[in-house]
Computed example of a mutant assay.
Amino acid sequence: MPILPERNGKKRPDAEPEVPQVSPAELAQQAVARLKLPVPVIRMNPDEDFAQVVHVPTWMWMPEASWGPVTETVSVPGVSVTATARPRRAVWSMGDGTTVTCDGPGTPYSSRFRADAESPDCGHVYRRASLAEPGGKYRVTVTVLWDVEWSGGGQSGTGHGLSSTTERHVLVDEVQAVVAR
């Protein structure tokens, strides 16, 4: 039996244990630390498993399902705090020294677009082949930046600084036209 607060100088074995007080801001930090941000999935057209072509528009996007809010709730007796992270933008490092910032997941390429059409919101045009790079490929990374809001216990707040990143190596090649006479 726990020995708890004193009464008239004596410990009372029958008293309820005191619950440590945790502020909503402290709970928010715990909720943010527990958020499980999805790892971005790189999609490209031409397909990322094949070569990109110099001077041909490359479309970049991530599946819509990986671009939604992520929520986590932490509770202690008497108070709960919920933190929600929302993707703000994607920053693509294309491996050729170029960075592309997209304000959303990008538009998936489909056959309704012309083959030489540029992406309406997230694309890049390579100017040189990757053959001189280590392994003959460019290292492409995408980092998703997340904004966080939290509320609970009569308080709320916002924050930045969360990110999730992935990478892949992409071959970029030149295509030479042959004119027959």
Rank of each mutant, 00 (worst) to 15 (best):
residue 104 G to H: 03
residue 135 G to I: 10
residue 148 V to I: 04
residue 121 D to Y: 05
residue 119 S to I: 08
residue 100 V to K: 00
residue 134 P to A: 12
residue 153 G to P: 02
residue 126 Y to W: 09
residue 125 V to D: 06
residue 109 Y to L: 03
residue 140 V to M: 13
residue 153 G to Q: 07
residue 126 Y to G: 08
residue 141 T to M: 15
residue 151 S to H: 09
residue 134 P to N: 12
residue 121 D to C: 00
residue 113 F to T: 03
residue 112 R to A: 04
residue 121 D to M: 02
residue 114 R to Y: 05
residue 103 D to S: 12
residue 127 R to C: 11
residue 118 E to M: 03
residue 108 P to E: 04
residue 130 S to W: 05
residue 142 V to I: 12
residue 149 E to A: 03
residue 103 D to V: 08
residue 122 C to L: 05
residue 136 G to D: 14
residue 135 G to T: 11
residue 155 Q to G: 06
residue 139 R to E: 15
residue 111 S to F: 01
residue 142 V to Q: 15
residue 144 V to I: 14
residue 124 H to W: 07
residue 152 G to Q: 10
residue 115 A to C: 05
residue 144 V to Y: 14
residue 120 P to W: 10
residue 118 E to C: 01
residue 155 Q to N: 04
residue 154 G to R: 06
residue 110 S to V: 01
residue 138 Y to S: 10
residue 150 W to N: 05
residue 124 H to E: 02
residue 149 E to W: 07
residue 154 G to Y: 10
residue 140 V to W: 13
residue 102 C to L: 06
residue 100 V to D: 01
residue 131 L to S: 15
residue 136 G to N: 13
residue 149 E to Q: 07
residue 154 G to P: 10
residue 110 S to Y: 00
residue 116 D to I: 04
residue 125 V to Y: 09
residue 121 D to I: 07
residue 116 D to W: 04
residue 113 F to E: 01
residue 113 F to S: 02
residue 155 Q to V: 07
residue 135 G to V: 10
residue 102 C to W: 09
residue 127 R to K: 13
residue 135 G to S: 11
residue 122 C to E: 03
residue 130 S to N: 03
residue 133 E to I: 02
residue 134 P to K: 11
residue 123 G to L: 01
residue 146 W to T: 09
residue 139 R to D: 14
residue 155 Q to T: 08
residue 115 A to D: 11
residue 139 R to V: 13
residue 119 S to W: 00
residue 101 T to I: 14
residue 134 P to I: 07
residue 140 V to T: 15
residue 152 G to H: 12
residue 127 R to G: 13
residue 120 P to H: 06
residue 119 S to L: 00
residue 129 A to Q: 12
residue 114 R to S: 02
residue 143 T to S: 13
residue 150 W to Q: 10
residue 142 V to K: 12
residue 146 W to K: 11
residue 118 E to I: 04
residue 142 V to N: 13
residue 132 A to L: 08
residue 111 S to M: 07
residue 124 H to R: 05
residue 129 A to E: 15
residue 103 D to F: 12
residue 141 T to S: 15
residue 141 T to K: 15
residue 118 E to V: 01
residue 145 L to C: 15
residue 148 V to W: 02
residue 105 P to A: 04
residue 152 G to S: 14
residue 123 G to W: 07
residue 137 K to M: 12
residue 109 Y to V: 03
residue 143 T to G: 15
residue 117 A to I: 05
residue 108 P to D: 03
residue 146 W to Y: 10
residue 147 D to C: 06
residue 132 A to W: 14
residue 131 L to P: 12
residue 124 H to A: 03
residue 121 D to F: 02
residue 127 R to F: 12
residue 144 V to D: 13
residue 144 V to P: 11
residue 121 D to V: 07
residue 101 T to G: 08
residue 113 F to I: 05
residue 152 G to P: 12
residue 137 K to Y: 14
residue 149 E to T: 10
residue 133 E to H: 08
residue 104 G to F: 03
residue 106 G to V: 00
residue 151 S to R: 07
residue 155 Q to M: 08
residue 127 R to M: 12
residue 125 V to E: 09
residue 147 D to Y: 07
residue 120 P to V: 05
residue 151 S to E: 04
